[in-house]
Computed example of a mutant assay.
Amino acid sequence: MTADPVSPLPRSVHREAPPAVTAMVRLIRGSWVKAESYLPEVTQFFYGMLFTLAPATRDFFPINMDVQRNRMVRALVQVVQMVDQPDDLLPYLRHLGRDHRKFGVEPKHYEAIGTALLAAMRTQLGRDWTPDVERAWAEAFTIIARQMQEAAAADDNPPNWSAAVAEHRRVSWDLAMVRLEPERPIPFRAGQYLSVEVPQRPRLWRYLSPANAPREDGSLEFHVRAVDGGWVSRAIVSHTQAGDVWRFGPPLGRLTVDRENGRGVLMIAGGTGLAPLQSLLDELAQWGENPKVHLFYGGRTREDLYALDGLRMMASCNPWLTVHPVVERGNGLSGFEQGTLADVVTRHGAWPGHDVLVSGSPAMIRATVSRMLVAGTALDQVKYDPFTID
């Protein structure tokens, strides 16, 4: 597991799980509460066992394991605890299974990962690791592994692609735009994202969304902001050079616009979470007639809205698009709404008759979607992708 899913929304917005699954998850969550305080010990035992059972898996991880150490175990546990939330979990697992083909993951590796995780938990929990607890963890991990393997087996695409950096431009001290030209076109759709490995940080894969729709020349443009503690994002912003070769995993994601269903579209973008929505706008701009689109584009300050001028220019040429800039701090800014995206969007109501696309940090997605559901937006109106960026 190389990325964390967005934390689940409140239970009330999900379909009720069968009682047996609910009981299984209750055992898993209860045992993890006891084990979480021993996370360093769980993690150390997990990797030691995994590399013993399947030495080839060491090549899946960066040389400096300190960067990765707790990430995989936390992601594994969070996924295991979401077994009773199929609306969130199943798309995530299918995406993850396809994406892990880039490592050369085989069925035997899933078995080794599951064995190592259960052994690490058993070692730390001692007498609290009862037969019922072990069965719950084993059944949950079996469900997870099966979904991932089935998705991987059904994917006919290459496991990865390569692309060379053609242009790297610093927009600000912490933001860069990078344009790449792939060896062969990557068959992504507007709104999707890709896992990326850069030469400055080998084996540290991260997820990035192209900010453009597919082009005839196959080129891709990414907007990357350096985040605190972000090894990959900081390397991209500060050290990327023309000619660098990046590797990409398969396209993933479920953000789309249906031009034929007669519904309006509400897009909500926080910071560089704009990229997949800008990709969709880029695609829509190829058509003369489109659904009415309202884009709420937010950040802490005016400076965070790096693409606002270009979006306003697009809106001036496309009457179907309305751009609403939002800042959390900026009293007196003409033409801006003030507050968090969750605050501002819900001031406009529940948005009935609209498809809602949300993109940004996990915290922003969670807060915005939760507030919209409370305001009366229906869950089946809302789409978001369940991965962090760095």
Score class of each variant (00 low, 15 high):
369 V>P: 01
344 V>T: 12
101 R>V: 02
227 V>D: 06
321 L>A: 14
125 L>R: 06
206 R>G: 08
357 L>V: 00
304 D>V: 12
390 D>V: 05
325 P>K: 02
236 I>W: 07
111 E>D: 15
71 R>L: 02
101 R>L: 08
352 P>G: 10
24 M>H: 10
257 V>C: 13
96 L>P: 01
67 V>F: 05
53 L>M: 04
220 L>M: 05
380 D>L: 02
325 P>W: 06
147 Q>L: 06
109 H>E: 10
124 Q>L: 07
45 F>Y: 13
173 W>K: 15
287 W>M: 04
34 K>R: 08
40 P>K: 08
210 P>D: 15
364 M>N: 09
60 F>H: 04
86 P>I: 03
225 R>F: 14
201 R>W: 00
140 A>K: 12
33 V>F: 05
7 S>F: 02
384 Y>Q: 10
170 R>Y: 06
147 Q>E: 11
75 A>M: 06
23 A>G: 11
316 S>E: 13
209 S>Y: 14
25 V>D: 15
263 R>M: 03
208 L>G: 04
140 A>H: 09
199 P>R: 08
128 D>Y: 09
43 T>C: 09
221 E>W: 15
131 P>R: 01
56 A>K: 01
153 A>M: 08
277 L>K: 04
357 L>I: 00
330 G>L: 12
179 R>D: 12
297 Y>T: 02
365 I>K: 08
96 L>Y: 12
195 S>V: 05
269 A>W: 15
218 G>A: 12
20 A>C: 05
190 A>Q: 08
381 Q>M: 07
196 V>R: 10
137 W>F: 12
257 V>R: 05
197 E>R: 00
171 V>W: 11
238 S>L: 14
244 D>T: 08
211 A>T: 04
134 E>W: 02
322 T>Y: 13
23 A>L: 13
91 P>M: 10
70 N>M: 03
160 N>S: 15
102 K>M: 12
268 I>H: 07
186 I>R: 09
336 F>H: 05
16 E>K: 01
375 A>G: 10
148 M>N: 02
132 D>Y: 03
20 A>I: 01
89 L>W: 00
34 K>D: 15
32 W>E: 06
112 A>H: 05
328 E>N: 08
233 S>M: 01
359 S>C: 10
364 M>E: 09
179 R>V: 09
73 V>E: 02
371 R>M: 07
150 E>R: 01
376 G>W: 04
21 V>Y: 11
280 L>G: 06
116 A>P: 00
203 R>D: 00
366 R>L: 07
234 R>E: 09
335 G>M: 02
110 Y>A: 03
286 Q>M: 13
196 V>F: 04
95 H>Q: 10
112 A>G: 09
160 N>E: 15
139 E>V: 07
24 M>Y: 10
314 M>S: 09
40 P>C: 05
249 G>A: 05
306 Y>H: 10
217 D>C: 01
21 V>M: 04
336 F>E: 01
87 D>W: 11
14 H>D: 11
324 H>I: 01
303 E>V: 09
197 E>L: 06
